[in-house]
């Protein structure tokens, strides 16, 4: 009976009202009140008020929750807003990127007149190897799924050391599935974004850091696969899939156009 040794205090009385005392302590406090009718009446009143307040407010918690306050609705709405914001930010980012090379559609000119070397790169081979490995995956095609769009972009951007744009290719029939991180070369990293079409065909956008070259959009074929690649600012990009080169080039242009804010 250690509880009975402590003198009864205001906190005991509050805890009695709230029913938070151990049975032993409650007995001690009740015994204390038995000798003090005035204080006992006060506690009785507090209990009654507490009960009345609970009763008065109970219907509010019993009401059906409005649709806008369902947790799932709040999460979905937040995701939608963030995706929109992300796209805007990435589009702005891409404008800068493309602007640095004088715009995409000037690339042939730049190659011809300014002599930007059209050097062969191992990028298509590397991107296609990654493409072949992961597009056949059914259970784990990606590490992070598209529904975590903001997280995916943040994570890959952090590991790549640059803000990675995630182009929206739904307009040309490819929906983002998600992405993963891959090793590149000896010490570099690459990101792979995977897209899927309605007919099950898949497309990957491979982004590699540590790219020494710089070149404009071109297509490399390898068997049934093709890879549209470009490189700028130390990063190499490869859009790969089992598509014919013309279609792939069309998708690549659509992607770039979409990423640069449409145009």
């Amino acid at each position: 009976m250690t509880g009975s040794e402590l003198p009864v205090g205001e906190d005991d009385l509050s805890a009695l009202v709230d029913g938070r005392l151990t049975p032993e302590r409650a007995a001690t406090v009740e015994a204390y009140l038995a000798a003090r009718p005035e204080e006992a009446a006060r506690i009785q009143a507090d209990r009654a008020i507490r009960a009345a307040l609970r009763e008065r407010l109970a219907p509010k918690a019993g009401e059906p929750v409005p649709a806008r306050l369902r947790a799932a609705a709040v999460i979905a709405e937040r995701r939608r807003i963030r995706r929109g914001r992300l796209r805007q930010a990435l589009a702005a980012c891409l404008v800068l990127l493309a602007g640095g090379t004088g715009g995409w559609f000037a690339r042939d000119l730049s190659e011809r007149f300014w002599g930007i070397p059209a050097r062969p790169a191992p990028l298509p081979q590397e991107a296609l190897a990654a493409h072949r490995i992961y597009t056949v995956e059914v259970v784990h095609p990606v590490e992070v799924k598209a529904d975590q769009g903001a997280h995916l972009a943040q994570w890959l951007s952090k590991r790549l050391g640059r803000r990675l744009a995630i182009p929206d290719l739904e307009g040309v029939g490819f929906r983002l599935i998600g992405g993963r991180l891959l090793p590149a070369g000896r010490s570099d990293v690459a990101a792979q974004l995977m897209y899927g079409a309605q007919d099950g065909s898949r497309l990957t956008l491979y982004v590699r850091c540590g790219e020494a070259g710089r070149w404009d959009l071109r297509v490399t074929k390898q068997g049934e696969f093709a890879s549209a690649t470009w490189a700028t600012g130390g990063y190499g990009y490869a859009l790969s899939g089992a598509l014919d080169p013309d279609r792939l080039m069309m998708v690549a242009r659509a992607a770039l156009s979409e990423m640069t804010g449409g145009g």
Partner: peptide
């Protein structure tokens, strides 16, 4: 995400009651 919703959902009626009482 669904897990988050499942964890938060049970507390919403009480949050509404507290908000309304205030």
């Amino acid at each position: 995400m669904d897990e988050i919703a499942a964890l938060i959902e049970p507390h919403i009626p009480a949050l509404r009651r507290y908000a309304w009482a205030l």
